[in-house]
Design a protein around this nucleic acid. Structure first.
Length: 431
DNA sequence: TAAGATGATTGACA
DNA sequence: TGTCAATCATCTTA
């Protein structure tokens, strides 16, 4: 209480701050009643001016003086009563809100996309799923994996930004909460603040920050969506198969020209070799058959080329003799779709392509014919086919019948079978 | 930039 | 369900 006089004094007419003004006020302009009133106004003004000029220390000192004021407990009690009647009654209407559905949705999505939660390759799983969904859009696994890794890298980038920002927000939220709680604790010395009220204030702060967090989550979701759509769009774009894949497919097609219907197993094998999907293999063969049939002349050169190619490799096979064509191999052929371009069965078919009436291209000369003879010799040596069978097949026309379909084309499932009778077309998987 | 090549899609059919 | 045929959309090349 001994500070009280000091407090009052500081509110008094001290001239320290503005002696000039105070002097002017004190001087006045006359000694009448009006002069007295002016004097009061001057005092008030002086007080105001003094307050604004007070340093922080002075303010602290005055605050302390106020805390120690003898009337403080009584005033505090009154404030408590008033607050009890007003503020607390309002509180009832502001009960806990249910968890935000949108926030939950965002959380779930971020978790599913692998942005939030533990890094378990969620994003890459999504990318893989997206790749699978867009199966057939790419050119090969190398390209797919490149795009895949690109997607993953970008997703990781988004994840990093998201977590950094989230941490920043959380830190800011904690700091601000601590700051507010300190303020409230400080204020609780001069006004009644219950723990519940502090709790409520903290709740308000958290809600504010969580709304900011929701914006962050929303932005992150949008970024992921954009990334995904771009990723999928890029995959939808058609790209040509690489040269090697096309060669493999063409080799198979022309070496099975009389029956260019690869079995499921053969398709699988081709798909693996070409690094494309089975449906892409099916598409390719479908397109190829139709386009070939529509314009055989145009494909003549290509057919000859591949036939010659196969024949050359076959010649080398013949040079190696039975090692590459053990007697057991032809009949074990049906084994699950594996095929070999240099095996006797495929050579047999390539010979067909080479010798078919309409395939006797100008580019294939007597040397190729001699290769054919060699091949026929090799084939006959393998014991898989008799010369007569070979001849009957080799010199048959394309296999394309008058209706435009491939002659005697068996159902795809029977393509692999080597147990069919003479004249049957097979060897897809003769190994 | 146009024309041709090529992979994918769609509907009909057996 | 696989294939054919037509067609679309995109890529490649001259």
């Amino acid at each position: 209480m001994d500070e009280q006089p000091r407090l009052m004094h500081s509110h008094g007419v001290g001239m320290a701050g503005h002696p000039g003004l105070a002097q002017h006020m004190q001087d006045g302009t006359g000694g009448t009643d009006g002069d007295g009133r002016k004097q009061d106004i001057g005092d008030i003004l002086q007080q105001i001016m003094t307050i604004t000029d007070q340093s922080l220390d002075e303010a602290q000192a005055r605050k302390h003086a106020l805390n120690c004021h003898r009337m403080k407990p009584a005033l505090f009690n009154i404030l408590c009563d008033i607050k009890e009647k007003t503020v607390l009654s309002i509180r009832g209407s502001q009960e806990e809100e249910p968890p935000d559905a949108q926030l939950m949705r965002l959380d779930n999505m971020l978790l599913a996309e692998g942005v939030s939660g533990p890094e378990k390759g969620g994003g890459s799983a999504v990318a893989a799923a997206a790749a699978a969904a867009a199966a057939g859009g790419g050119v090969g696994s190398d390209t797919n994996s490149a795009e895949h890794s690109d997607y993953r890298a970008k997703l990781t980038q988004i994840r990093g930004i998201y977590h950094t920002e989230l941490e920043k927000y959380e830190q800011a939220c904690n700091e601000f909460t601590t700051h507010v709680m300190n303020l409230l604790r400080e204020q609780s010395r001069t006004r009644p603040i219950s723990p519940k009220e502090i709790e409520r204030m903290v709740g308000i702060i958290h809600r504010k920050f969580s709304s900011i967090q929701m914006q962050l989550k929303q932005s992150t979701c949008e970024a992921v969506m954009i990334l995904r759509s771009r990723f999928l769009d890029a995959r939808r774009k058609r790209r040509n198969f690489n040269k090697q894949a096309t060669e493999i497919l063409n080799e198979y097609f022309y070496s099975h020209l009389s029956n260019p219907y690869p079995s499921e197993e053969a398709k699988e094998e081709l798909a693996k070799k070409c690094s494309i999907t089975m449906s892409q293999v099916s598409n390719w063969f479908g397109n190829k058959r139709i386009r070939y049939k529509k314009n055989i002349g145009k494909f003549q050169e290509e057919a000859n080329m591949y036939a010659a190619k196969t024949a050359v490799s076959a010649t080398s096979v013949s040079a190696h003799g039975s090692q590459a064509n053990s007697p057991s191999t032809p009949n074990s052929a049906g084994s699950a779709g594996s095929f070999n371009m240099s095996n006797s069965g495929d050579l047999f078919m390539s010979v067909q392509a080479l010798n078919g009436d309409s395939y006797q291209g100008a580019g294939v000369g007597a040397n190729v014919q001699s290769q054919v003879d060699t091949l026929r010799h090799v084939i006959s040596q393998t014991g898989g086919y008799s010369d007569s069978i070979a001849a009957s097949q080799m010199y048959s026309p394309q296999g394309i019948n008058t209706n435009g379909g491939w002659q005697d084309a068996p159902t795809p499932s029977s393509v692999n079978s080597l147990t069919e009778g003479p004249g049957s077309v097979h060897s897809d998987t003769s190994n």
